[in-house]
Simulated assay, not measured.
Amino acid sequence: MKILVPATTANLGPGFDCLGLSIGLFNSTIIEKSNFFSISIYGEGSESLSLKKNNVFVSIFNEVYQRLSGKKDTFRFIFENKIPLSRGLGSSSSVIVGAIGAAFEMTGFKVEKQKILNEALKYENHPDNIAPATLGGFVVSVVENENVFSIKKSIDESLSAVVVIPNVPMSTNQSRAALPINLSLKECVFNLSHSSFLTACFLEKKYDLLTIASKDLIHQTRRMKNLPELFEVQKCALENKALMSTLSGSGTSFFNLVYKEDAKYLKQQLEQKFKDFKILSLEFDNKGFEIC
């Protein structure tokens, strides 16, 4: 079997740990029953010995497979990774969702996306990345009684993503360490109102209001200080036709949403100014993970 899982961008500014969307950049994994265990990695992480020795995908897959089937079979895994590691584009969520979905498929259980999403919550305790990786599109999620409740909106074909990927990684734990323990009432109200407004903008296709809706007071500025060039990335994007420009997840990547006809121009402007960063123009994904 083969499973494809998309990259994701989370938070979208004010929607800390609850908003996310799915981007058309995929990790694919081929899994075959075998007489002996083997693992091959191509693309992102191909030179990492730790990914071959302590592969999280393999660990989660085996754990779920054995729980569902009651058997300890051996498999060959072939990974082709296009999602950058530790850049805030959902690489860890793609691993979690992919491993669980593949385990359900290989044991013959029906692959129900809601069930996969609830299983994924056991490995990642907030749904902002795992929900769009599972469902695709723009997704709003809440967690109640260890279950994820999500509302998905497909993203218009008139929109594109322009993603800025710095050459500096950032772990989620490192990035979260920059956040305060306490927040003011003003900061909380600001983010609640902007997160609600941003959701309404996507649901009602009021994309020209996203520049206002995507503002944040809780996490972005604090995290961006770890790589000050990101302030210039955001400024450049918003001055060159981006509808919104937000830190992708915990960083260091920056996500820019733009009308499709403006994507090439924005990409060129960013490439001219940030020559050491990778700039990708990508479609959105409205399907979530797929089993081929």
Rank of each mutant, 00 (worst) to 15 (best):
K153L: 11
S171I: 05
P127S: 09
V139R: 02
E157L: 14
E157T: 13
S158E: 15
F138E: 00
A161W: 00
V163F: 07
E146G: 00
V168C: 11
I151Y: 11
L135N: 08
E157V: 11
D128N: 13
V163Y: 01
S141G: 07
E146V: 04
P132S: 10
D128S: 15
A133P: 01
T134C: 13
G137F: 01
V148E: 02
E146T: 09
D156Y: 06
V148C: 07
K152W: 03
I130Q: 04
L135G: 08
S158R: 14
P166R: 05
P132I: 07
S158H: 10
V140G: 05
E144F: 12
N167M: 01
F138C: 06
N129S: 11
N129F: 06
E146D: 15
P127Q: 09
D128W: 07
P169A: 10
S154A: 14
V140E: 14
E146M: 12
S150D: 00
S160E: 11
S150H: 03
V139C: 12
T134F: 04
I151M: 12
P127I: 02
V148N: 09
V163K: 03
D128C: 12
P166C: 10
P169E: 13
V142I: 14
A131M: 10
V162Q: 07
N147T: 14
K153A: 13
V139E: 08
P166T: 07
P166V: 02
D156S: 14
F138V: 08
A133N: 04
N145E: 14
N147H: 15
N129K: 04
E157F: 11
V140W: 00
I155E: 02
S150E: 02
P132M: 10
L135K: 10
K153E: 14
V139K: 05
T134M: 03
M170P: 02
V168Q: 15
V162L: 04
S150C: 12
V148W: 06
A133D: 05
V162N: 05
V162H: 04
S150W: 05
P127L: 04
E146P: 03
D156P: 09
S160I: 06
A161M: 02
N167G: 15
V148D: 07
I155V: 14
A133T: 01
N129V: 00
M170Q: 15
V168S: 12
S171D: 11
E146Q: 15
E144R: 11
E144L: 13
E157M: 10
V143Y: 05
V143N: 09
F149W: 09
G136K: 06
V164Q: 06
P127G: 06
V162I: 13
